[in-house]
Design a protein around this nucleic acid. Structure first.
Length: 319
DNA sequence: CTGATTACCTGAATGC
DNA sequence: TGCATTCAGGTAATCA
C-alpha cells in the first residue's frame, strides 16, 4: 500500500529517467484505470501522444508529470507546461520503467512508449491489481502559496488542478505548523479523522496515522478542539519521523533503477509499533515493565491500533 | 462544516 | 474440493 514515502520513492525513481522524454504512444489496456479521465480513452491518448515530460512532481500521494507539446519554443526557451499526466497509486498501483521486450505484467493497465534514449528503459507502465489507483490528464493551474512544494526536483509554480485541494504534507519544506494547528483547533472531530483528512494535512494513511498516534501517545478519538499545541506538534513530528524512516528504508532497498521504480519499498521490512500488532505487547510499555497488549478497534470503517495504557481514551473531551 | 455511508476493486483468507 | 463471505485500503460523491 503506497503511502507518501512510497510515492516519493517512485517520484525520485522516475524523475531522472522520464524528464525530457517524449511520450510516443499510449496503450490503454484497461479503461477502468483512466475512469477519472472523463473524456475517455481517445482524448486521454490525444493529450499525451507527442507530449514531452518535463518533471515529476508530488503532493501528498498525488504524483504528476507536467507536459509540454514541444521541448522548446522558437526562441529556445522551454515551453511552460499547461497540463499534466496525473497518477494516484491507490492501494496497489505501480509505475514501472521497463524494457520494450519485458513481458506484460498480469495487471498491466496502461503502457507509455517513450522516445528512445541510450541506456534508458523504453516504457513507462502503470500496473494496478485492484484499480483503486488511476491516471488522467489534468490542467496545471497557478497557486498562490508558492507551488506544490513537496519534494519535486525543481520548484514548480503550477499545481495539478486535481491536487489543488490537498494540503501540504509533513515532509514539505513549506509545511506550516501554525496553519495546521489553527485549522486543527477549529475542527470538531477526532484526531485520527483529522490526520487522515488530506485537506488538512496530506500523505497520512491509516497505517502511518496509527504509528504517529502511538509515538505521540495520543488516542485516535482525542477531540481536536482541545488539543494542546505541544500535543499537535508531537503527533505531527511523529508522523514526519515515521515517514522519514520509511523513506530512508525505501531509498536503501531501491538503489538500482528497475528495482527502484517498482512501487514496493522498505515498507514491509519496516518494524511497526502499533499497526498490525493486535494482541502483541506494546513495546514502550514493555520497556517500562508494564504489560499491555495492542488493541484493535474499528474506527471510520478501518482498523485502529492503540495501546490501552499509554494511549488512553479521552474522557469527556479531555484527559 | 461535520460525519456517516457507499462505490470503486481483487485476491487472500476464512467459513461451511 | 468448492463455493460464499469477509476483509483490506484511499478517494470522492452523496446524504443527513
Amino acid at each position: 500500500m503506497p503511502e507518501l514515502p512510497e510515492v516519493e520513492v517512485v517520484r525520485r525513481g522516475l524523475a531522472s529517467w522520464v524528464s525530457g522524454r517524449t511520450i510516443e504512444a499510449v496503450d490503454v489496456l484497461d479503461p477502468r484505470s483512466i475512469r477519472r479521465h472523463a473524456l475517455g480513452v481517445e482524448d486521454f491518448r490525444g493529450n499525451l501522444e507527442g507530449a514531452v515530460v518535463t518533471d515529476v512532481v508530488r503532493r501528498g500521494k498525488f504524483l504528476w508529470l507536467p507536459l509540454t507539446d514541444n521541448p522548446h519554443s522558437t526562441d529556445g526557451a522551454a515551453a511552460e507546461p499547461k497540463v499534466a499526466l496525473m497518477a494516484h497509486l491507490g492501494m496497489s498501483g505501480q509505475l514501472l520503467l521497463q524494457e520494450h521486450d519485458a513481458p506484460d505484467q498480469k495487471h498491466l493497465k496502461v503502457r507509455f512508449r517513450l522516445s528512445r534514449r541510450d541506456g534508458m528503459p523504453a516504457q513507462l507502465r502503470f500496473v494496478d491489481q485492484r484499480i483503486f489507483g488511476g491516471l488522467f490528464v489534468t490542467a496545471l493551474i497557478p497557486t498562490d502559496d508558492g507551488g506544490p512544494g513537496g519534494l519535486s526536483a525543481t520548484p514548480v509554480p503550477l499545481i495539478a488542478e486535481e491536487a489543488a485541494h490537498i494540503a501540504r504534507d509533513p515532509l514539505d519544506p513549506a509545511f506550516s505548523f501554525p496553519l495546521f494547528y489553527a485549522r486543527l483547533r477549529r475542527r470538531r472531530t477526532g484526531l485520527k479523522r483529522a490526520l487522515l483528512d488530506q485537506g488538512l494535512v496530506s500523505g497520512i494513511g491509516n497505517i502511518y496515522a496509527d504509528e504517529a498516534l502511538w509515538r505521540a501517545r495520543l488516542h485516535y478519538a482525542r477531540p481536536t478542539d482541545t488539543l494542546r499545541r505541544s500535543d499537535a506538534e508531537r503527533v505531527l513530528e511523529s508522523a514526519r519521523e515515521v515517514m522519514t524512516d520509511a523513506l530512508a528504508a525505501g531509498g536503501t532497498s531501491f538503489d538500482s533503477l528497475y528495482v527502484n521504480v517498482n512501487g514496493a519499498s522498505g515498507y514491509f521490512d519496516r518494524s511497526l509499533d502499533a499497526y498490525g500488532r493486535e494482541g502483541q505487547p506494546c513495546k514502550r510499555c514493555a520497556a517500562a515493565g508494564i504489560h499491555a497488549n495492542i488493541r484493535r478497534e474499528q474506527f471510520m470503517n478501518r482498523s485502529s491500533h492503540t495501546c490501552p495504557v499509554c494511549q488512553p481514551r479521552p474522557r469527556n473531551g479531555r484527559w
